[in-house]
Computed example of a mutant assay.
Amino acid sequence: MRRRLPPLEQIEAFIEAAQAPSFRVAAERCALSPAAFSRRIQSFSSYVGLRLFERRPGGLRLTPAGERCLAELKPALLELRRAAASVARRNDEALSVTLSLSHSLAVGWLIPRMDAFRAAHPEIELSLKTQRGASDLRCGEADLGVCFSDIDLTGLVSRPLLSVTVAPVASPEVARSFKARGGRLERHRLLSVSQPPDMWPWWARETGLAAELPSASTCDLLHAMYEMASEGFGVALAAAPTVWPHLENGRLVRLDLPHAAFPGGYHLVAPADRRDRAPVEKVWRWLEFEAERTPDISRARIAA
């Protein structure tokens, strides 16, 4: 009797878990609760009959069996998605465009500009897929994307779009405390993100700060770090352009400390066959226009 394949959502959950910095982030990407996500991983592990993850310092990691499983399944899933997208692809005159970009860039930069996009191009239906890599572009599920420079863009059409600068920010209350306590970071709780790691030591080296900084509390998501800082839990090392909504509404203010340019930046990316579509061209040009209007964090008001 032929053995039935596991449900596709279990395979997708396993691949997300293998690539995400934590199961919590992978569950968010799959729009599942942590409990539901864990059940999918357990069901898939039972189907395979092997231990796919093991606990190590820093969290769960793939076992050798899990690594082999990922190497076999990921290309197959991408090919299946590509085939499905090819079957369902609309003709070249379709006025729908799917844009792939990270969660932090979607929330902190693009979504606040969506009203402007609808005003400029009411004829285009723009859908978003929040994913950090380029797999949605390669498998045909996205028409264009905005990817950070550490993403492999081989075979895709790309151009630089947004540079990234970082600077310490805090809630107005914490900013006042920072100034009253002599402007010393080592006297405050520091907040950072898990990826990329060691951002505070990097910033200190880049800006020539001689003080020895305490270890930072980390968040998986950039937006979660901004929310923690806005609620007064510490000083965050913010990245422009994604921090601007919090600066503009006053929930965060920039401290009287130097900023630094982060290596690399965001690139505008598209598969060559999608780049030529008229609706994609319009979205591409609009994104370029908005990027040119995005201010550098050096222009943010420093807390009095």
Rank of each mutant, 00 (worst) to 15 (best):
P21A: 10
H246D: 10
H121Y: 09
T63C: 10
P197R: 11
Q10P: 00
A240L: 02
D273R: 13
A18H: 04
R2S: 15
P6G: 07
P214M: 08
V107F: 04
E79P: 06
S217I: 13
Y47F: 14
P64D: 11
S38M: 15
L137D: 02
D256T: 08
S215E: 15
Q42D: 15
E72M: 12
H223M: 15
T130A: 12
L255W: 01
A238F: 09
R187C: 08
V193L: 11
R29E: 06
S135I: 03
I111M: 08
A94Q: 09
A303R: 00
A134S: 13
S43I: 00
P245K: 05
V280E: 01
R187S: 11
A204Q: 03
W202F: 11
N91G: 14
R132W: 10
E123K: 07
E292H: 12
F262S: 00
A304M: 11
L209H: 14
T242M: 04
T154W: 01
R3I: 14
L105F: 07
R39M: 14
A300F: 03
V235T: 08
L252E: 01
L8C: 06
S158P: 00
F37E: 07
P258Y: 05
S33N: 06
A270K: 00
I41H: 05
T165H: 13
Y226K: 01
S171F: 02
R184E: 12
L257D: 05
D198F: 11
R132M: 09
A94D: 11
F14C: 08
A18S: 10
P201W: 09
G133W: 00
D273E: 12
R176Y: 06
A291C: 00
W286N: 01
H188N: 09
G66T: 03
R187I: 01
E28Q: 15
V169N: 00
C139Q: 07
D136P: 12
M114G: 03
G145V: 04
G265Q: 04
G208W: 11
V174T: 13
P168K: 02
P112M: 01
L62Y: 01
Q195G: 09
R293Y: 02
Q19Y: 02
A65W: 09
S96M: 10
R159F: 01
S171D: 09
S100H: 07
T294V: 01
A180Y: 05
L126C: 04
P172W: 05
L213P: 03
A175D: 07
P271E: 05
R113M: 02
A204W: 05
E292K: 12
L32D: 11
C139H: 12
L153T: 08
G264S: 08
L247G: 03
